[in-house]
Deep mutational scan, measured.
Amino acid sequence: GMDVRRLKVNELREELQRRGLDTRGLKAELAERLQAALSGPSSG
C-alpha cells in the first residue's frame, strides 16, 4: 500500500482532494485522514 507518512503535504492534499476529502489541517492530520481512507472500506 501507500505510505502516507512519506508523502509531502501537497501530495497528501492531492490524494485527499482526489477522494473528495478535506484538505485542511496539519500534515499529521492529512496523513491520518488519508490513511483512514485507504484502509477503510472501498466503495464503488
Rank of each mutant, 00 (worst) to 15 (best):
G1T: 14
R33Q: 01
K27S: 04
G1H: 14
D3W: 15
Q35G: 06
M2F: 14
P41I: 13
R33V: 02
L26N: 15
N10D: 10
T23V: 07
S42M: 14
T23K: 05
R19V: 03
K8Y: 05
R6V: 09
V9Q: 04
L34Q: 01
G1Q: 14
G40S: 11
G40I: 10
R5L: 11
R6H: 12
R13T: 03
D3Q: 08
R13Y: 04
D3T: 07
L38Y: 05
E14V: 10
R13S: 02
E14Y: 14
E32W: 10
R24F: 07
V9G: 03
D22G: 05
G20I: 01
A28Q: 10
V9T: 08
Q17T: 08
E14M: 14
G1W: 14
G44K: 10
R6Q: 11
S43M: 12
A36D: 08
R33G: 00
M2I: 15
L34M: 03
E11H: 05
E15R: 05
R5I: 07
L34A: 00
L30E: 01
L16P: 00
Q17L: 13
R6E: 10
E14W: 15
L30F: 01
L16Q: 00
N10T: 13
G40T: 11
R24E: 07
R13V: 08
V9S: 05
A37H: 09
R18E: 04
V4F: 07
G40Q: 14
E29V: 10
E29Q: 11
R18D: 03
A36R: 13
P41D: 12
E29M: 07
S43H: 13
A36M: 09
S43W: 11
S39N: 14
R18P: 00
A31E: 10
R18T: 04
L30R: 00
E11N: 04
R13P: 00
L7F: 06
L30D: 00
L30P: 00
L7Y: 06
L30T: 01
Q35H: 10
D3M: 07
D3V: 08
G20E: 03
G25E: 02
T23E: 04
R19H: 05
N10K: 15
K27D: 04
E11Q: 14
E29W: 06
E14H: 12
T23P: 09
R19F: 05
A31P: 00
R5A: 14
G25N: 02
L16K: 00
R33P: 00
L12M: 05
K27I: 08
A37E: 05
L38Q: 04
K8M: 07
D3E: 08
M2T: 08
Q35N: 08
A31N: 04
L16I: 01
A37V: 08
V4L: 08
Q35T: 09
E32I: 10
A28T: 09
S42E: 11
A31H: 05
R19W: 04
E11Y: 04
A31L: 15
R18H: 05
G25A: 01
A31I: 15
E15N: 03
Q35L: 15
L30Y: 00
L21T: 01
R33A: 02
G44N: 12
L38T: 05
A31Y: 08
E14G: 07
P41A: 14
N10V: 09
V4E: 02
L16W: 01
K8V: 04
L7H: 03
L12D: 00
L38M: 09
M2R: 10
G25V: 01
T23W: 09
A28P: 07
G1C: 14
L12R: 00
L30K: 01
Q17R: 15
L16H: 00
R24L: 06
L21A: 03
L26W: 06
G40A: 14
E14S: 11
N10G: 09
L12F: 01
R6P: 05
E11P: 01
A37S: 06
S43P: 13
V4R: 04
E32T: 10
E14D: 10
E32Y: 08
L30A: 01
L7V: 02
A36W: 08
N10S: 14
L12E: 00
A37G: 03
R5S: 15
L34V: 02
N10W: 15
G25R: 02
K27E: 06
A28L: 07
Q35K: 11
L38A: 04
R18I: 06
L38E: 03
Q17K: 15
A28W: 15
S42W: 11
A31C: 14
S42G: 13
L7T: 02
G44E: 11
G44S: 11
Q17F: 13
A37P: 01
M2G: 07
E15W: 08
G44F: 13
L30S: 00
G25F: 02
G1L: 14
G40M: 12
A37N: 05
Q17G: 10
E29D: 08
R33D: 01
V4A: 06
L21I: 05
A37R: 02
R33F: 02
R24M: 07
E29T: 08
S39Q: 13
A36V: 08
L12W: 01
L16V: 01
Q17E: 11
D22L: 05
R24V: 07
N10F: 10
D3H: 09
G44C: 11
L26R: 15
A37M: 05
E32M: 12
R19P: 02
K8C: 15
K27F: 10
P41V: 13
L26V: 10
G25T: 01
L7C: 00
R5V: 08
E15F: 06
G1E: 12
R13M: 06
L34Y: 03
R19S: 02
V9N: 04
V9A: 07
A28D: 09
P41N: 13
E29G: 03
K27W: 15
L21P: 00
K27T: 05
S43R: 09
V9F: 10
P41H: 13
D3A: 08
N10A: 14
T23H: 08
A37T: 05
L12Y: 01
G20V: 00
M2P: 09
R13Q: 06
S39T: 12
G25L: 01
L12V: 02
D22Y: 04
L21G: 02
D22H: 05
Q17W: 11
V9H: 06
G1K: 12
L26I: 09
D22M: 04
L12H: 00
R5Y: 14
D3N: 10
Q17M: 10
G1P: 14
G1I: 15
S43Q: 13
T23G: 05
E11W: 06
R5N: 14
S39E: 10
K8I: 03
L34G: 00
R6D: 09
S42V: 12
G1A: 14
E14L: 14
K8N: 15
K27G: 05
G40Y: 11
P41L: 14
G20W: 02
R18G: 03
K8D: 15
N10E: 15
S42P: 13
A28Y: 09
D22F: 02
L7I: 03
K27L: 09
T23M: 05
V4G: 04
R19Y: 05
A36K: 12
G25Y: 01
D22R: 05
E15V: 03
D3L: 09
S43L: 12
L16N: 01
L12S: 00
S43Y: 12
E32F: 09
A28C: 06
L7D: 02
N10Q: 14
V9M: 12
E32G: 08
R33H: 01
A36T: 08
R13D: 00
L16G: 00
R6I: 09
E11T: 05
K27P: 08
A36Y: 07
S39M: 14
L38S: 04
E32R: 14
L38I: 11
L16E: 01
L38D: 03
D3S: 08
L16R: 00
R24K: 10
L38W: 05
L30Q: 01
A37Y: 11
K27M: 07
A37D: 04
R33S: 01
R6L: 13
A36F: 07
K8R: 11
L21K: 03
Q17S: 11
E29I: 07
E15D: 02
R5K: 13
G25I: 02
R33K: 04
L38V: 07
L21N: 02
R5H: 15
N10I: 09
Q17I: 06
E14P: 00
E15T: 02
T23I: 09
S42R: 07
L34K: 00
R19Q: 04
L7G: 02
V9P: 05
Q17H: 13
R18S: 05
L12P: 00
T23N: 06
G40E: 10
G20L: 03
Q35V: 10
E29H: 06
E11I: 06
Q35W: 14
Q35F: 11
R13A: 03
D22E: 07
K27Y: 11
L26S: 15
G44I: 12
T23L: 04
Q35S: 10
E15H: 06
A37F: 11
A28M: 07
R19G: 01
L34R: 00
R6T: 12
L16A: 02
R18Q: 06
L26M: 09
L21S: 02
E15M: 08
S42H: 12
A31K: 07
G40L: 12
L12I: 06
S39V: 10
S42K: 09
L38F: 06
